[in-house]
Design a protein around this nucleic acid. Structure first.
Lengths: 154, 154
DNA sequence: TTGGTTGCAAACACTTTGCAGCTGA
DNA sequence: TCAGCTGCAAAGTGTTTGCAACCAA
């Protein structure tokens, strides 16, 4: 998986994994369509985690004609390219999120519904703990842990 | 479902959480029916984690007449009594499991599909790590972490 | 031109709900 | 008896698939 080389200095510091998606698709004999552009636009804004259903809704905001099947199929393609990954969200629904430079898991508060990213160091602690437990090699990107956030636990 | 589970004994002993289910149900004005007995029998054998779908299938093995709605409704009741909890399995499906004395999460190997319980000490480490991170109060019983087991990671 | 894509609709799998009749206590 | 329970069937979700038309390269 080739990383994007550099990024316009502007606001975003890290290189976006989305740089050159169109070219990469074409290089594999795939096509760059308006529908895919819409989805990618939505995804790069989210930079976090979204359910497929939510993605469909967001795409529809931009393009009324968006259909679920296209979104699901495009997500499949993007996952093949390592641009998104799907995990299993708190609602038991498929949840997609941008594959960031730093793979991380998520925390979901059952009380207020908010979501946070698990910090790298904390994620590492979890990975270590489970490696020590059963020699398990955790895929942090698939992890969503539920519970209560600091505000809601009171 | 208005009732909350109140444990008359006040303390949880090491005995099977299923002991006296019938009585506890009746004590709350609920009924002990053949259908519920079937489901409880299946559950106490499983002692781990099962999807609702699998439970329905297992119940059907014992009683051809089992219907999904009854199983789901009974699971709701049992959850109110703290006898099972539902989490979110690797397939994105609702997953129920017997509430053991020691609440624990699960590990799921994406390569071989096997599932393990996270040991209490390891679970505690995870809880601690996340408490330190964002003051997050993890509900371990809802956690299923995927990755590769020791055998499959090679 | 041509094969990857799309949109539609129908199929799917799982779960929930309304309701009339049944049954445990 | 009578409130709780069951089975059925139908509705609801969210996701997948078949297929003819469409369009990026």
């Amino acid at each position: 998986m080739p990383q994007a080389a550099s990024n316009p200095a502007g606001g975003v510091a890290a290189a976006s994994p989305w740089d050159g998606v169109a070219e990469r698709l074409r290089a594999s004999g795939l096509r760059w369509t308006p529908q895919r552009r819409t989805l990618v636009d939505v995804l790069r804004e989210h930079e976090g985690h979204v359910t497929a259903t939510e993605l469909i809704a967001r795409c529809r905001e931009r393009d009324q004609t968006t259909t679920p099947s296209t979104v699901y199929r495009t997500l499949d393609v993007l996952e093949d390219f390592g641009l998104v990954r799907h995990g299993h969200g708190p609602g038991g629904r498929e949840e997609y999120h941008v594959l960031p430079d730093q793979v991380h898991g998520h925390l979901y508060c059952v009380a207020c519904g908010a979501t946070w990213e698990i910090r790298p160091e904390t994620g590492a602690a979890i990975v270590d703990a489970l490696a020590a437990d059963l020699g398990f090699d955790v895929d942090l990107s698939h992890v969503t842990i539920s519970g209560r956030c600091q505000t809601c636990r009171d």
